[in-house]
């Protein structure tokens, strides 16, 4: 697996964001069954056999083992938190499991500022985010709203 840098997010403020701003793509993977097993252990949830047994997955009409949608959503949410910095407060997050992530797939986590605005005396950044695989398929479209302080306040 590629080394993924994870640390307390950088210090960023509302003024650091602008409409159309692209965040650096975060690459996860190749995702492996081990990632799914670790997620199942973290959630104490082992009941969906198709997440770890290829025979069962194919018998259920799936192309093979698929990684859990909430795991992929959590990876995307982590990227949003990292992109928007340590002072950001995640207000809303939305994701849709449109396609499957399978073992040995890469996951490219992408984000772009849709809107930066002030409302009710608070400042927010709204962004579109997604996971795309190595075939260019968007498996997990999403969006997020983050409250950010102004610099110096």
């Amino acid at each position: 697996m590629l080394k993924v840098e994870t640390r307390e997010p950088e210090e960023r403020f509302f003024e650091d964001f602008f409409e159309g701003q692209e965040f650096p793509t975060v690459t996860k993977g190749p995702m492996m069954v081990g990632d799914q097993v670790r997620w199942a252990g973290a959630c104490d949830n082992y009941e969906s056999e198709f997440h770890h047994d290829e025979y069962v997955a194919k018998a259920q009409g799936l192309p093979g083992i698929i990684l859990s949608g909430p795991l992929m959503a959590s990876l995307l949410m982590t990227a949003v938190i990292q992109w928007t910095g340590r002072h950001g407060r995640l207000v809303r997050f939305f994701d849709q499991n449109r396609g499957s992530t399978m073992p040995r797939d890469l996951a490219y986590l992408k984000g772009r500022v849709k809107r930066a605005f002030e409302e009710g005396g608070k400042t927010f950044v709204e962004l579109d985010c997604s996971i795309t695989n190595q075939r260019g398929e968007v498996t997990t479209p999403g969006s997020a709203l983050v409250e950010l302080p102004r610099r110096g306040r």
């Binding site: 909430p70 982590t78 990292q82």
Partner: peptide
């Protein structure tokens, strides 16, 4: 936080989590 590959100190450090009253679990 290991499963979601987010090792932000706020999840494990008293100092980093002090803003929240101590170490916290990831939002989800």
């Amino acid at each position: 936080f290991q499963a979601i590959m987010d090792d932000s100190p706020r999840y494990r450090s008293e100092a980093a989590g002090s803003r929240y009253g101590g170490p916290v679990a990831p939002p989800g």
